[in-house]
Structures are given as C-alpha cells and as structure tokens.
Write a protein that binds this DNA or RNA. Structure first.
Length: 694
DNA sequence: ATTAGGG
DNA sequence: CCCTAAT
C-alpha cells in the first residue's frame, strides 16, 4: 500500500502519519502494578482510630515523650502502674545479646521441631514461632509489663526444652489467657504438667496452632544451614507516632532482631539503629535485592489481609497521594458519632506474621486527671524493643457524668514476630531492607480490629460500650484490641507469582493523617485541622462486622476471668496464615517509582524536532530517533512530555513551573500539535470515507 | 511491545 | 511519572 509513503504537506517537512502497524505485537502488556484501593487501612490507622480519647490536654505539656529522634518506641506506662511506685522493674530494652537471642534460637528450634513432627504445612508461608509471643493482644492491667515479661521469659525457658518445645509452645499459646497471674513458673509448670498428662491433647493443639504455621515449604530447609534465620525478637515495637524513617535505613532492629545461625553467635549481627520502626516509607531506589525479595516472598512471608470498604473507610473516596507523612493517629471523642477516615492509597503486600495478629499494647487510659502533669513520665518510658517488656496497657474508664466517656489510647502495638530468610552473603543493607519490608508489609496490610473484653471477643459491633461492659470499671482492665487480618477475604492465592514480595523500606506507609497526640509525638506533631472524631464505640461500629471470626475457638481457651493476656484464637492464627494475598501483592512488582528527571531544554528541543518530523503517534520512532541513547526516556515518557509541553504551551508563562522552556520551542510545540492533530482528523475522515465506499 | 489517555 | 486499556 501507500501507507508508508511519505508525502510532503508543506509543513516543516512533516510526514504523513504512519498507519497502524499491524505487525506490532498485540500482546497485552503486563501490568506491573495494581492500583491500590483506598479501602485498606493500615494498622496504625486502625489503632489510632480505635484509640479513644485523646489526651488533648497534653498538647501543652509532655513535649518529649516520643521524640522523633532515635527512638520512637514508646512505652506506655500506665497510670496505675505509676502510682504504684514503679515497683516493676523498668522495662528496658534488651540489647541484642542474650536473653532475646535465646528466643531467636528458640524460634529456629521450633521450626525443627515442627518439622520433625511432620506438622509441616506446605500451604502457608508463615511462621508459627510467635504463637505465644504475639498472640496475646491486650493487657491492660496495671502491671502489664510484668506479665509480658513473664511471658517472654516463659518462652525462653520453654525454648530450652528442645524436645518439648513445640508442644509447650503451642500449649502456652492456648493457655495464654491465664497469664494474668503470676506467669513465670506457674505457667510453665502448668504447661509441663499438661504436657505429661495430656500428650495427645497437646499434640493436637499444636497441630492446630503450630503445625500449619510452619512456614517452610520444605521441611528439609529447616536443617539446612545457609540462610540465616533471622527473626525479630518476638516482636517489633511499632510506635504510633513514628513519622519518617530515612530511606534505606531501617531503624528498628537494633534491639529487635538477632541474627541466628547454627554457628551460634558467630554470625550474629544486629542492626545498630535505634528501634524506630518506621519513620518514613519513602520510595527509594533499590536495585539488586530481587533475590532477597524473592526469597522472602517465597518463604516466610504471608500476605496481609484485606479490608473491605465499608469497614474502615469513609465515603470520601478520595485517593490520597502516597507520599505523605503519616501522623500518629489519634482520635478524639466528641459528641459526634462519626469518624472520618481519609482514605489513602494503601500498599499492601505479602506479609508474614507469625501469629494471628498484631497485638496491641501500650494501651493507656487517660484518666481525667492530670495527664498533663505526669503524662511525660508515663509515656516517655522507653519501650523494650525486644518486646520483652511491653508497654503497659492500662485502661481505665473515667466516669464523671451521665455522659461518661471511655477514654483510652493505644500508644503502640507490636508487630508479630518477623521471619527473614536471607543469605549469609547478603549485605547488612539488604537485611535492613528485608526487615523493613517485612514490617511494612505487615503494617500495610489490611487489618481488622478485634475488641476483647475479659478475653472474649466482642463480635457484635452494634453493642454499646456500656452493654459490652467496656465502660465498666472492672472490665476496663480487660479490654483489649487486636489487629488481625480480614478472615473473610479471598483465600490466599498461593500462586508463585503472588509470592513475590517486594516491599521497600521506603514504602510509603499508608497512614491516615490524624491529629497527632502531642504526648506521643510532640515534635512532628502536626495536628490536622480537622481531626477525626470518634470514640471507641463508633470505631467498632464503623468496622461493622469487620471483626468477624470464622470460629469460636477464639474464646475456647480464654476463661472469662482471664485477665491481662488474651489469647488470640487459634483461628486468628490460621486466618492470618491464610491471609489472602489479596489483590496480589502489588508492592511486589510495583518496585519503585522512577526518579523524576525533568526534561532539559535540549531534550525538549530534540523532542519537538522529532515530533515535528514524525508526528504525535509514533513515540517509539521518536524515541529511536532522538532518544535512543537516553535509556531513562521511554517512549511513554516522551509521549507524556509532549503532552505536558502542549499543556505548558497553552498556559500563561506565569503558570509554568520548572525550568522555563523557550517560548520558541513552545510555539513549535503548539504548531506541531495543531498540525498533527489536524492530520489525525484527516486520517480518520479518510478512513470513514473508505469504509462508506465499501 | 506500543499507543492513547486518564490520574 | 504511573497505570490501564486497547491495539
């Protein structure tokens, strides 16, 4: 035909628009990413939302509880505790030296144990290690820290029982509700007793709680040495008030994770960063870690659950830019019963949390009285990053008038144990990223909030706090929140393709910008003008039915009176395990946004020239012609640039930004654009005419 | 793989 | 720049 024939239209040598190339590939381009819907909500958001009262008064005082500095981890010391002379030992961070390391080792032992007992499940990629540590969710009694501490100790001790480890572990989990008392020996003894007496039972328990949680696809992997098994020490403290974390530097592992290898401490290395989990998730170029990511994806990661629209987000449906500072979430209870969440574009990816949920901790109540006065002291306590010491989650209801309000705030929560399988030869940097990815994945996943009272889950979202007893003094102590995956989501695809999991340490954390509690984050506090208004009741309702648990197993092990530790139902564990890969871990392939590279005038010049010559529908040719060696300029980029050029040319110079483009070029842009647009029309006309003729 | 457009 | 749909 004559389609390719060149004709001279007498205009700058423009050529006839090229006809569609029939020969060009018609394969659909594989989309590399999926747009994240704003339905999702980060754990932070949820927590923040759930958090009831917001120590508004604190705004004026308590400035540095949670400095943005190195350590974001905040331990919330509950008021009660404080009033009790601080009998409890200060919860200090346990350096990555011994105690905590034990747990790591412990973890690996679990794996082996599980493996040996054929409890391995190839289906799910998540670890069970945190069955105990991460399962309990709330603790709100005055000596929470102590309990938690016990818990940890217990675990460690259990860890030494190599042979019975697995059983103990699972058992412990099941019995966690009883921690309220004098954990330690008591619990342990209890466990051992049960072990002896009910081996089978225990076994079954384990089967339920642990077996499937094994993240190893191949049992043999367990005994293989190469990949060092790294696990965060029981959990990672995630303060709510983190703001930004410098890209590439994961600052939260120092005390949280240990590298464990069969060679003992030889290879152990810890991060030296403070335990700030995430200050900022910004995209950052990360090349060369694919391998690691893949590894992560295929082994120990699990996907984060999804949330439904109606569950958490509001109706504004507004998509917010990804880059945004995440503020500490804070909710204020007011008369209004609605809370509004700004939807965010959330990222999600496969995550691996070893247990069924992220336990909340650091729930503190804010008694009417002087939060101002002692707020600093109580909140500034460092939180044991190791999770050994969990922040106190004291909750108390303050009653004063008919219009009693339940005030509480969740200062922080922990991310369940993380597992990272990484090569020994990987760099520390990649390790950091891996951890960051893991954390991000967890936090970026969709979670639900579970509310527990005295160890029981409150399912009816429509009940009032009064009805559920949340507002009751005695029950406040047993109020807990859990972060858990959405069990109702589609089952995890388990497909390899979805396994790829590439979170970036700089991944923007999808958090809603809430007003920040001065107490928590005085420095970065940037109270939004219109903080969400809500109260616990509303929050729960807002998530109507979102906290649904497929089974009732949840309460099986929790005695009504159990306090402090609330065991998260085995179901949760499974649910998490099966956490739907939902919407395919977009993060995985999303990789990062390319860096912005403004076109220089010379580039514009070249582009204009090429377009004048080739027209506006042959970007590939334009690319080849003028940008063939500009690797970073794709034909899409050129096309986009042209688009913006045209736009720029149309607007007034005052409205233009960036490096000014010579008017001369803009004029050419305009004329070329007009010309080719015309050509296009002509072409269309001809087409239709020829059709009519046929 | 390209192109065209919306975001 | 990104993301998608349609080629």
């Amino acid at each position: 035909m004559v389609l390719q024939k060149r004709l001279d239209y007498g205009f700058n040598g423009y050529q006839v628009p090229a006809m569609p190339r029939a020969s060009r590939s018609a394969r659909g381009r594989r989309s590399l990413g999926v747009k994240v819907e704003d339905k999702q909500m980060s754990a932070f958001e949820l927590l923040a939302t759930v958090a009831g009262n917001l120590l508004q008064e604190r705004e004026s005082s308590a400035p540095s509880n949670a400095s943005v500095g190195n350590d974001q981890s905040i331990t919330v010391k509950d008021t009660v505790k404080q009033e009790q002379h601080d009998e409890e030992k200060p919860l200090k961070v346990e350096p990555c030296d011994q105690g905590s390391c034990d747990e790591s080792v412990f973890v690996s032992e679990i794996h082996s144990q599980v493996h040996n007992q054929n409890y391995t499940s190839k289906k799910f990629l998540y670890s069970q290690s945190d069955a105990t540590l991460g399962l309990y969710s709330i603790i709100t009694t005055s000596d929470q820290s102590e309990k938690v501490g016990c818990d940890e100790k217990l675990v460690r001790r259990l860890g030494r029982h190599k042979n019975t480890f697995g059983n103990l572990h699972s058992k412990v989990k099941g019995g966690s509700p009883g921690y309220g008392e004098s954990c330690k020996d008591k619990v342990e003894d209890e466990i051992e007793k049960q072990l002896e007496a009910e081996p089978q039972k225990i076994g079954s328990v384990m089967n339920e709680n642990v077996a499937d949680t094994c993240c190893l696809e191949d049992p043999k992997e367990l005994n293989r040495k190469p990949p060092a098994l790294i696990s965060s020490d029981s959990s990672v403290e995630v303060p709510l008030n983190r703001d930004h974390i410098p890209c590439g530097s994961f600052r939260g592992c120092q005390d949280d994770m240990k590298v464990v290898s069969r060679d003992d401490d030889e290879n152990s290395s810890g991060c030296t960063q403070p335990s700030t989990i995430m200050k900022e998730f910004r995209k950052q170029p990360r090349i060369g870690d694919r391998r690691i990511r893949k590894l992560l994806a295929s082994k120990y990661w699990k996907v984060a659950p999804k949330l439904k629209d109606d569950e958490l987000s509001n109706t504004d449906g507004e998509m917010k830019p990804v880059y945004r500072n995440r503020k500490t979430c804070f909710t204020r209870q007011r008369s209004q019963r609605n809370f509004s969440f700004k939807r965010r574009k959330l990222y999600q990816s496969s995550v691996s949390t070893s247990d069924g949920g992220i336990s909340s901790e650091g729930i503190s109540t804010s008694p009417e009285k002087g939060i101002n006065g002692d707020g600093t002291a109580s909140d500034a306590t460092m939180h044991g990053a190791t999770g050994t010491s969990s922040s106190v989650a004291g909750q108390q209801a303050s009653f004063q008038s008919m219009d009693s309000h339940v005030k509480l705030s969740i200062k922080s929560f922990r991310v369940p144990e993380l597992f990272i399988d990484i090569s020994e030869t990987a760099t520390v940097g990649s390790l950091k990223r891996a951890v960051m990815e893991a954390v991000t994945a967890i936090l970026g996943g969709e979670l639900h909030i579970g509310v527990l009272i005295q160890g029981k889950k409150v399912r009816d979202d429509n009940k009032t706090l009064l009805q559920t007893g949340i507002s009751q003094d005695d029950r406040m102590d047993t109020l807990g929140f859990m972060l858990e995956p959405n069990p109702a989501q589609d089952p995890p695809p388990l497909c390899p393709e979805n396994s790829s999991f590439l979170l970036h340490c700089d991944t923007p954390l999808p958090l809603t910008r809430y007003s920040v509690s001065p107490t928590l984050d005085p420095v970065t506090s940037d109270a939004s003008p219109d903080p969400p208004v809500t109260n616990l009741g509303n929050c729960v309702q807002g998530h109507h039915d979102s906290v649904f648990f497929p089974t009732d197993i949840s309460t099986v092990n929790s005695t009504p009176d159990s306090r402090a530790l609330v065991a998260i139902p085995a179901m949760s564990v499974e649910a998490l395990a099966v956490v739907p890969l939902h919407r395919k871990s977009r993060r995985s392939e999303l990789v990062q946004r390319r860096i912005r590279r403004p076109f220089s005038v010379s580039e514009v010049e070249a582009l204009v020239q090429a377009v004048e010559k080739l027209g506006t529908g042959r970007w590939r040719d334009v690319k080849l012609r003028s940008f063939d060696n500009a690797k970073h300029r794709t034909y899409v980029d050129l096309k986009d640039k042209w688009k913006t050029l045209v736009h720029t040319a149309k607007i007034s110079p005052q409205q233009r930004r960036g490096e000014p483009v010579p008017q001369e070029l803009l004029d050419r842009v305009l004329s070329a654009h007009a010309y080719w647009s015309q050509q296009a029309k002509q072409h269309v006309k001809q087409q239709s005419e020829s059709c009519l003729l046929l």
